[in-house]
Nucleic acid binder design. Structure first.
Length: 1088
RNA sequence: GGGCCUGUAGCUCAGGUGGUUAGAGCGCUACACUGAUAAUGUAGAGGUCCGUGGUUCGAAUCCACGCAGGCCCA
C-alpha cells in the first residue's frame, strides 16, 4: 500500500495504464455500468484515414473525450462509435498521383473497377496510425465496430435519404456556373472553396477593352476584366441603371487616334488626367499613363441600356439576341469602368443577369453534337476559337513553357486598336485545394438539393441548438444559413456514393431508387423487358459503387432504357448522413436510431461550420424537420507558437505521437484544454507544455509522494473522516475548499467550459493543497506520536487527493487513474460516480478568513524581508487592528508557525497606532451624489485621525449639511504608526522586531539546528536516521544554547549531544551568524 | 467588400451585472527557506488595458468609428 511511483515519468506510466485498461476492459465496463441509464448521445465526426492524424485532431478529440467521460461519470450511458469517412476527392487525387494517372485515364488506361479498388485500399491506409493515436491519447471510443461510409449498408441508407429528398421535390437537376477544377477534372463544392488556403493572392493581367457601338462606329464602351480569356465568350455588357456615365473625347493610347468612349463618371479619374490639361495626343501623362480628355455628355446608366455593340471576337453566332447592354445592380465603381463584361458561360452573376435579360450564352457544338462553351473541360479553347484553339486558359498542365493566353488575347486586341489599357492586377482568387490551380467558373450540369427552400426552417431550428460559443451559432453559422444557396450534390468522379437516379436519354422519364430491394425489383422488370441480361442485385455481395451500378439499365414506363446519372455525390453528404446510415436506418436498428437521435453533443473544429455542422443540420431539417444535434462545442485551430498555421510546407507541424512519447498524453491534453478556451486558436508552445508537466503534474505528484512516504512509514489504513468539529480549522478549511472546488468544476463541465475546470483544479492543487495545506501541516505527518490528529491529516489528504483525481479524470484520464488506484480507492476512477458537492462541509467564512490569513502571511514575509531578520529568528509579535480578532484568532497558530512569531497582538481601536482612512462607498454614493462624490472623497482624505475616530464612534459623518452613515463609507486601517508595517487592500499588519536575549538565543538554536540538518543531508542520512552529535561552539553561544539542547536533539534526531571544549584541528566550514563552529555527526546505533 | 472572433506585462492568459491602487503563471534579477528539495517563499523590474471619440460622478468593462491579426465568405 502507498507505493512510491518515483520521479514523474508520465509517458511510461500511461502505457502501463493503457495495458491495465485493455486487460480490465475498463472502457467496456464504463459503458456496461451505465446500461439502462439515460442516454447521452454523442456523434463522432468521421475522419478520413488517408492522411496521418495531427495535433489538431488531438485537440478536438480531447474535447470530445472529456465530455463523454464526464457524462459517463455523471451517470449517463454514452455510447461512442468511431467512424471513417472514405469517399471523396482527396482519396481519388492521392490514388491518381500514386498510379501516375490523370482523370481522363480512368475508364481507359485503368478500369473504374480497378481504380475504385485502389481507392478503397488507399483510404484506410492510415487507419492503424489513427487507431494507435486514438488509443494512445486515451480517447475512449469503440474502434472495433466503426461505421464506414463505403459499406453497402451505409450507401443504402444514403440512397434512402436521397429518395426522401427526391420525393419532397428537394432534389433537382440544373445547369449552373460552378467552380470547376480542370486539373482535377471536377466541379468543386462551396465547401471545397471554403477550405483554408483556397483563396490566394495572385497577379492577373487586367485589361480595359473597347466595345464598338453599332450605332456610332467612333464610339466605344470601355469594359474592364481580369479574365481576358472569357472575352471570346462575351455576350453582353452590364451597367448600373442609376449610375452616371459619361461620353468623352480622348485618344486611343496605343494608336493616338482620337476616339470617343463611354464609362462611368466615377471611373474617369482612374483612366484620365485632370480635365485642365491640354487636349493633345502628346499630353499623355508619362508617369501614370493617364490621358487627356473632354466631356461630351453625361448620361444615366438606364439610358444606355439596350445599346448594341460589335463583339470583340466573332467565332460563333449566338442563338439569340446577344451583344447589347443590360442593367445589373452588382455593377460598382470600386474597380474598372463601371461597365461590366458579361460572359454567361463563365460567371455565376453573369449567367443570372443574362438569363434575366434574355442574353444567350456563347456555345458551340462539339463532335458529339452537344453544346459546349468555348473552353473545354480540360481548360483549353475549343477549335472554333481559331486564333487560340487548343490553348490552355491557365497553366493547367504544369507546362514550364506555358505562355499565358491572356497576354496573346491582349496583344490581339491591341493590334486591332481595341485595347485601352493593360495592367497587372493583384487579387484573391480561389484555387483548387488539391491541384493548387486556379478555379474556372464553368457551366456544369448538376443535381442540387433545394436547401434555399428550407432557409427559414434551417434558421429557426438552428436557434434551438446550444452553440459553444454562442456567437458561432448566431453569427457565423446563422448568417450562413440565412443566405444559404442550393447544395450542389454532384461530383463527376468515381469513388463516391453513386447518385441513385436513372433517366432516359431524352430526360423524359427518371426514377430515384431508395433501397437495394427497390433496385432489385426494378432490374427484374428491366430484365423481363430485355434490357438487362441478369440481375446483379441477386448476388448478396452486390457492390453499389461504380462501375457496377453504372451497368444497370432500368426500364422506363414506355419501355425505353433509363441510364444512371453518372455523378457520384458530394462526400459531405456521406458524413452528414451519419446519424442514419451508421445504423442502416430505416432498414435496421430503428429502435436504436431513435434512441440516439438527435445527438446531445458533437464537437469539431471551426472549419466544420460549413462542413459537417452544416450537412448534419441540412439533412435532418430537410427530412426529419428537426435538428441533428442539440449541442455543439467548437474548437479553434492549433497554430504554432508564433501564431502561424501549421503546415508541412513551413515545417512547423507538431507530431502528436512524439509529444505524447516525450511528455505524455495527459499533459498534452491538459495543456490544450487549460491554455485557452476551446474556441480560440491555441498557439502551441512546447515549452509551456513542459512547464505544465513540472508545475501541475509535478506538484500533484509530489503531494501524492509526500502522502505515500509517511503513510507507508506509519502504516496508515484508510478510515472515515473524523467529525468535523474535532478537526483543526486548517482541516475544515481544506475540506471546505475541496467542496467548493467540486461545485465550481462541476459547473464548468456542465457549461462545456473545461478550460475553467482545468484552471480551477490547477489553482487548487498548487496554491491551496500543496503550497498551503501540506506546507503548513508537514509536521503532523512526520511527528512521532501516532495520534488522532495524525490519522486525521492522512485521511483528509487522501480524500482530497482522491477528489482531485475524480475531478480531473475527464481531462487527464491517465494520471488520475494512477492516483486513484494508488490511493486505494475503487477499481477505476472512470468507473466512479462524479463527486457531488457536500454543502455540510462548506465553511465560506473560513474560506474568506484563510484567504486573508494567507495575505497577512505574505505581508509579514515581506516585512521580515525588509527587516533583514530571517524566519529562523523568532520575533515577539505581529500587530493587527482589533477588528481582525474574530476571524484571525482561530487561525492565528498558523500565522505564528509560518512566520515564527510568539504572539499576535490586537491593537485597540482607540490605540493611536492604528491609522484609519475613510473613503466614500462609490457603489452607494456614486449614483446619489453624482459629481459631488469626488469632492466628498477629498474631504474625507484631509480628515485628521482624531476626526476619523470620532466619526467611527459616532457611527456617521457630516458633510455639507448631509449625514452619511458608516455604511456609506469604507473604513480602512491603513497603517500602524510607529511600527514596521505593510498594507494591501483592506489589510494592514505590523511586525515587532525587538529581540530579547531569549529570543536571540532561540534564534541561535534554530540556526544551529539548520546547520546540523545541512550536515545530515551532506552526510547522506535518511530522514529517520538517529545520530550522535558533537559540536564545538564558543561562548556566549554555547551557554545560551544549553536550554535548547532537548529541542536541538529532538529536531535533529540526535540521541546525544557532546560539546567540544576546543575547536578541533580540521578546518571549519560552518558558521553560526559569523561565528565559526564545528559539527561532527555519526550514525547512532542504539535506537530509542 | 461582408460576417464572426481576437487585441490587457517580454510570453501564455484571468479580469459576472461599470466602482477605489488592473491581476496570475512563466521568464528575468535578488534574497530567503530546507523532514516534499529537479520542490517552495518573498521582493524587484516590467502596463499609452490597440487607437479616437462618446455615455457616465466613474470605463479595461457600455456605445460608435477606426486600426491590427485570425477564420470564413464575396
Amino acid at each position: 500500500m502507498w507505493k512510491s511511483l518515483g520521479p514523474l515519468r508520465l509517458s511510461q506510466w500511461e502505457k502501463e495504464v493503457l495495458e491495465l485498461w485493455r486487460h480490465e476492459k475498463t472502457f467496456e465496463a464504463s459503458l456496461a455500468r451505465r446500461q439502462g441509464a439515460p442516454t447521452f448521445t454523442f456523434y463522432e465526426g468521421p475522419p478520413s484515414a488517408n492522411g496521418k492524424p495531427g495535433i489538431h485532431h488531438v485537440f478536438a478529440r480531447t474535447l470530445k473525450d472529456l465530455v463523454c467521460r464526464y457524462k459517463t461519470m455523471r451517470g449517463y450511458f454514452v455510447p461512442r462509435r468511431a467512424g471513417w469517412d472514405t469517399h471523396g476527392l482527396p482519396v481519388e487525387l492521392a490514388v491518381e498521383k500514386e498510379l501516375g494517372i490523370r482523370k481522363s485515364d480512368i475508364g481507359t488506361r485503368i478500369s473504374i473497377a480497378d481504380y475504385n479498388r485502389a481507392c478503397r485500399e488507399a483510404v484506410m491506409r492510415y487507419k492503424n496510425a489513427w487507431n494507435e493515436l486514438t488509443e494512445r491519447m486515451g480517447y475512449w471510443i469503440d474502434l472495433s465496430n466503426p461505421y464506414i461510409t463505403f459499406e453497402s449498408s451505409y450507401i443504402e441508407s444514403v440512397w434512402w435519404l436521397l429518395k426522401g429528398l427526391y420525393e419532397k421535390g428537394l432534389l433537382y437537376k440544373d445547369y449552373t456556373i460552378q467552380p470547376y477544377s480542370p486539373a482535377a477534372g471536377t466541379a468543386l463544392s462551396q465547401h471545397e472553396l471554403n477550405l483554408p488556403g483556397a483563396y490566394r493572392s495572385v497577379e492577373d493581367p487586367s485589361i480595359t477593352v473597347q466595345f464598338r457601338s453599332q450605332r456610332d462606329p467612333q464610339l466605344y464602351f470601355l469594359a474592364w476584366t481580369t479574365t481576358p480569356w472569357t472575352l471570346p465568350s462575351n455576350a453582353a455588357l452590364a451597367v448600373h441603371p442609376e449610375l452616371d456615365y459619361a461620353e468623352i473625347e480622348t485618344f486611343q493610347p496605343y494608336t493616338r487616334e482620337p476616339i470617343r468612349v463611354v464609362l462611368a463618371e466615377g471611373a474617369i479619374s482612374r483612366y484620365f488626367s485632370h480635365e485642365e490639361l491640354p487636349f493633345t495626343a502628346e499630353a499623355i501623362d508619362r508617369r501614370t499613363g493617364k490621358l487627356p480628355w473632354r466631356l461630351i455628355r453625361r448620361i444615366k446608366g438606364r439610358n444606355i441600356v439596350n445599346e448594341r455593340y460589335e463583339p470583340l471576337f466573332r467565332y460563333v453566332e449566338p442563338k439569340g439576341d446577344a451583344w447589347r447592354i443590360i442593367p445589373a445592380d452588382f455593377v460598382t465603381l470600386e474597380e474598372g469602368t463601371g461597365i461590366v463584361h458579361i460572359a454567361p458561360t463563365f460567371g455565376a452573376d453573369d449567367l443570372k443577369a443574362a438569363r434575366k435579360h434574355g442574353i444567350p450564352p456563347i456555345l458551340v457544338q462539339d463532335d458529339q453534337g452537344t453544346l459546349t462553351p468555348l473552353v473545354d473541360k480540360e481548360g483549353r479553347f475549343v477549335p472554333h476559337v481559331t486564333d487560340f484553339a487548343g490553348r490552355y486558359v491557365k497553366n493547367y498542365t504544369n507546362d514550364p513553357d506555358y505562355k499565358p493566353v491572356d497576354e496573346d488575347i491582349a496583344q490581339n486586341l491591341r493590334q486591332r486598336g481595341l485595347l485601352f489599357r493593360k495592367e497587372v492586377y493583384r487579387h484573391n482568387y480561389p484555387h483548387c485545394w488539391r491541384t493548387d490551380k486556379p478555379v474556372l467558373y464553368y457551366p456544369v450540369e448538376a443535381w442540387f438539393i433545394r436547401t434555399s427552400a428550407l432557409r427559414e426552417k434551417l434558421v429557426a431550428l438552428n436557434r434551438t441548438i446550444e452553440w459553444y460559443p454562442p456567437a458561432i451559432g448566431e453569427g457565423r453559422f446563422g448568417n450562413w444559413l440565412e443566405h444559404v444557396e442550393d447544395w450542389n450534390l454532384s461530383r463527376s468522379r468515381f469513388w463516391g456514393i453513386p447518385l441513385p437516379i436513372w433517366r432516359t436519354r431524352d430526360g423524359k422519364y427518371e426514377r430515384c431508387i431508395g433501397s437495394f430491394a427497390e433496385l432489385q425489383e426494378a432490374v427484374e422488370e428491366a430484365r423481363h423487358k430485355g434490357l438487362m441480361p441478369h440481375n446483379p442485385l441477386d448476388r448478396p455481395d452486390f457492390d453499389p459503387h461504380r462501375p457496377y451500378v453504372d451497368e444497370i439499365i432500368l426500364a422506363a414506363p414506355d419501355g425505353s432504357p433509363m441510364y444512371r446519372e453518372p455523378d457520384v455525390i458530394d462526400v459531405w453528404f456521406d458524413s452528414g448522413a451519419m446519424p442514419y446510415a451508421q445504423q442502416h436506418y430505416p432498414f435496421e436498428n430503428q429502435g436504436v436510431f431513435w434512441a440516439q437521435f438527435p445527438a446531445d453533443f458533437i464537437a469539431e473544429g471551426i472549419d466544420q461550420t460549413r462542413g459537417w455542422f452544416y450537412t448534419l443540420h441540412a439533412i435532418a431539417v430537410a427530412l426529419f424537420d428537426t435538428v441533428a444535434y442539440r449541442r455543439v462545442l467548437v474548437n479553434g485551430l492549433v497554430l504554432d507558437k508564433e501564431g502561424n498555421k501549421m503546415s508541412k510546407r513551413l515545417g512547423n507541424v507538431i507530431e502528436p505521437e512524439e509529444l505524447m512519447e516525450k511528455y505524455g498524453a495527459d499533459p498534452t491534453r491538459w495543456y490544450l484544454v487549460s491554455n485557452a478556451p476551446p474556441w480560440e486558436n491555441v498557439r502551441f508552445d512546447e515549452s509551456r507544455l513542459a512547464e505544465k508537466v513540472r508545475t501541475f503534474f509535478g506538484t500533484l505528484h509530489n503531494a501524492y509522494e509526500f502522502f505515500a512516504l509517511y503513510a507507508r512509514i506509519d502504516g496508515y489504513r484508510p478510515q472515515p473522516l473524523p467529525p468535523l468539529e474535532s478537526l483543526p480549522p486548517i482541516d475544515q478549511w481544506v475540506l471546505s475548499e475541496t467542496e467548493k472546488l467540486t461545485a465550481e468544476v462541476t459547473s464548468a463541465y456542465e457549461s462545456y467550459f473545461p478550460t475553467q475546470a482545468a484552471r480551477l483544479i490547477e489553482e487548487f492543487v498548487i496554491e491551496k493543497l500543496s503550497n498551503w495545506y501540506i506546507r503548513l501541516n508537514r509536521r503532523r505527518f512526520w511527528k512521532g506520536e501516532k495520534d488522532a490528529d495524525k490519522w486525521a491529516a492522512f485521511t483528509i489528504l487522501r480524500d482530497v487527493l482522491g477528489r482531485v483525481a475524480q475531478l480531473m479524470a475527464p481531462i487527464a484520464p491517465f494520471y488520475s487513474e494512477l492516483l486513484w488506484r494508488h490511493l486505494n480507492f475503487s477499481d477505476s476512477v472512470h468507473l466512479s460516480d462524479f463527486p457531488q458537492e457536500n454543502p455540510a462541509l462548506r465553511r465560506p467564512d473560513l474560506e474568506a478568513a484563510m484567504d486573508k490569513v494567507r495575505r497577512l502571511a505574505s505581508l509579514l514575509h515581506s516585512l521580515r524581508k525588509r527587516s533583514g531578520l530571517r524566519v529562523r529568528q523568532p520575533l515577539p509579535q505581529a500587530l493587527v487592528p482589533a477588528s481582525y480578532r474574530s476571524w484571525l484568532e482561530p487561525l492565528s497558530d498558523l500565522l505564528l508557525q509560518e512566520l515564527n512569531l510568539k504572539a499576535i497582538t490586537y491593537l485597540d481601536d482607540h490605540s493611536e497606532a492604528v491609522v484609519y482612512e475613510l473613503r466614500p462607498n462609490y457603489r452607494t454614493l456614486g449614483p446619489r451624489l453624482g459629481a459631488r462624490v469626488s469632492a466628498l472623497a477629498s474631504y474625507l482624505r484631509q480628515l485628521s485621525q482624531k476626526e476619523i475616530l470620532n466619526a467611527i464612534h459616532q457611527g456617521f459623518i457630516q458633510w455639507e449639511g448631509e449625514t452619511f452613515p458608516l455604511s456609506d463609507l469604507e473604513i480602512r486601517a491603513q497603517a500602524l504608526a510607529g511600527w514596521l508595517h505593510a498594507s494591501e487592500g483592506e489589510l494592514t499588519v505590523a511586525l515587532d522586531t525587538r529581540l530579547s536575549s531569549e529570543l536571540e538565543a532561540e534564534g541561535w538554536a534554530r540556526e544551529l539546528i539548520h546547520c546540523i540538518q545541512l550536515s545530515r543531508k551532506e552526510a547522506g542520512l535518511e530522514v529517520t536516521d538517529r545520530i550522535s552529535l558533537s559540536v564545538f561552539l564558543p561562548d556566549p553561544y554555547r551557554s545560551a544554547l544549553q536550554k535548547y539542547e532537548p529541542l536541538i536533539a529532538q529536531e535533529t534526531l540526535a540521541t546525544q549531544i557532546a560539546w567540544y571544549d576546543a575547536p578541533p584541528s580540521e578546518p571549519n566550514t560552518v558558521f553560526l551568524d559569523t561565528v565559526p563552529l564545528h559539527i561532527d555527526i555519526s550514525l547512532a546505533y542504539e535506537h530509542t
